[in-house]
């Protein structure tokens, strides 16, 4: 069994928090043990008692008063100490200015819209449910929501922050080694809060640049007749009212941008790994995979479904 993710940090911010968790846990556990020992001794020791319950020795009461008072002061000091340790970590994590990569994450029921803003529209990356970040660089997320409150949480990398409609929150982190880091929405947001996963893929600079370049390009044209038929099926079905594929006439914004769907690793915000099979299952019966999802069930013929999947799997 591996360490729980919050204690297996993959970046300096998560590392700072992990350190905090360990130190607090250690101290609190120690205090708990001390209190339990005191309790045990209190229960076990034989104390001679007079028949009259109101006969208490003033001297003894005084002594205990001093001890309890002293313990109260000690508690206060410990608590003040912990407060300052916490402030220290807070300053390290939240005081981060600047940022090398800016990403906008916009929450929807039940998927994440991901945008890498740029001065030119043609250089803006639009994707969903997955972030790519360069290793060793400070990433700054700007978080908001279009509907209800969500929360972005990838424990290996950083603590969470809420996505609140009408407000913008920020989260800054660095991934210090390549890897795939998973997380999920951490604020109850309705029927499929359970299946609102997010993936952060940290890669070295070269890979990141290549990925970005791939993302800003327009959608791949169909390479086979099947894919061409699939594209036609896409454009003639209600798909276009919710989804966009840049380079085609599909411009819907209610659902995830599908321009580079096949470059992503999961379908339906982490509900399943993306394969031909899961994509087909998702399109054929979204309610079966993710009951309550906003994607309607569409009546497609088997042939249409097949070609559609062919086309979509070609959108790398």
């Amino acid at each position: 069994m591996s360490w729980p993710e919050a204690l297996d940090p993959k970046g300096p911010e998560a590392d700072a928090v992990a350190g905090l968790i360990w130190s607090f846990t250690g101290l609190c556990a120690f205090i708990w043990v001390l209190v339990m020992v005191a309790l045990a001794v209190a229960l076990i020791r034989r104390h001679r008692q007079s028949e009259d319950p109101l006969a208490v020795t003033i001297g003894e009461e005084r002594r205990v008063e001093w001890i309890v008072g002293g313990l109260a002061v000690l508690t206060g000091l410990i608590v003040i100490g912990l407060t300052f340790i916490s402030y220290g970590a807070q300053a390290r994590i939240f005081g981060l200015g600047g940022g090398d990569v800016a990403i906008d994450v916009i929450g929807h029921q039940w998927w994440w819209e991901v945008r890498y803003p740029s001065d030119t529209a043609s250089a803006t990356v639009v994707t969903a449910n997955e972030l790519h970040v360069p290793v060793g660089k400070l990433v700054r997320l700007r978080l908001t929501s279009t509907d209800v409150i969500h929360s972005f949480w990838v424990p290996s990398l950083i603590g969470k922050a809420d996505l609140i409609p009408g407000r913008t929150n920020t989260l800054a982190f660095t991934a210090d080694r390549p890897g795939v880091y998973a997380g999920q929405c951490a604020e109850f947001c309705g029927l499929q809060h359970t299946h609102m996963g997010i993936r952060v893929i940290a890669e070295d600079d070269a890979d990141f640049t290549a990925w970005k370049a791939g993302q800003v390009a327009a959608a791949h044209e169909p390479a086979t007749p099947a894919q061409a038929a699939g594209k036609a099926a896409f454009l003639s079905n209600p798909c276009v009212s919710c989804h966009a594929i840049r380079g085609t006439t599909a411009g819907g914004t209610l659902g995830p941008d599908l321009t580079h769907l096949a470059s992503r690793t999961t379908i339906a915000a982490g509900t399943a790994e993306l394969t031909r099979g899961t994509l087909a299952a998702w399109i054929a019966d979204p309610q079966g995979m993710k009951p309550g999802t906003n994607m309607p069930t569409m009546k497609l013929s088997a042939a249409d479904l097949n070609t559609l999947v062919d086309y979509l799997m070609g959108l790398k």
Binding site: A14, V17, G159, K160, A161, A186
Partner: peptide
């Protein structure tokens, strides 16, 4: 007491 710390809470809240 652990939850009272903001950074710690960001990991374990919710």
């Amino acid at each position: 007491v652990m939850l009272a710390s903001v950074p710690l809470d960001t990991q374990v809240h919710d």
